[in-house]
């Protein structure tokens, strides 16, 4: 197994575990954590392909990861604000009980 394949396998596992958490856990914050894990798996793929690809001097992989980190930060801030707003409105953050948008 080459180092590239090892990195891709680690990132595939991170993606699968993040997906499993996002669809099976009941708490809204854990769903956000699962999404962050999936984004990190994608970032790891970018870095692995940049490092072992044919043109690492072009820095495209690093730039993609930096921009995706900034977008992940924005997404986490808005997502957690939504969780807090829903908790204030419905007094729960259990996703099975939050079924409608209309309060």
């Amino acid at each position: 197994m080459t180092p590239l394949q090892a990195c891709l396998l680690v990132s595939a596992f991170l993606f699968a575990i993040g997906f499993a958490g996002a669809v099976t856990r009941r708490h809204a914050i854990l769903v956000l954590i699962g999404i962050e894990l999936m984004l990190n798996a994608a970032n790891l793929n970018f870095i692995a392909f940049w490092r072992f690809g044919p043109h690492p001097e072009a820095l495209a992989g690093i730039m993609f990861v930096l921009f995706s980190m900034a977008l992940a930060g924005a997404e986490a801030a808005v997502g957690l604000a939504l969780v807090i707003a829903i908790y204030r409105h419905k007094k729960t953050s259990n996703l099975d009980e939050v079924k409608d948008l209309k309060g």
Binding site: A12, F13, F15, A16, I17, F19, A20, V23, T24, R25, R26, H27, L95, D96
Partner: peptide
């Protein structure tokens, strides 16, 4: 109570398939 959603079995199966 349980920390898992009601349809968690299908989620596990799909994520194993993805991996």
């Amino acid at each position: 109570k349980s920390v898992l959603t009601s349809g968690w079995g299908a989620g596990i199966v799909v994520s194993v398939l993805v991996f």
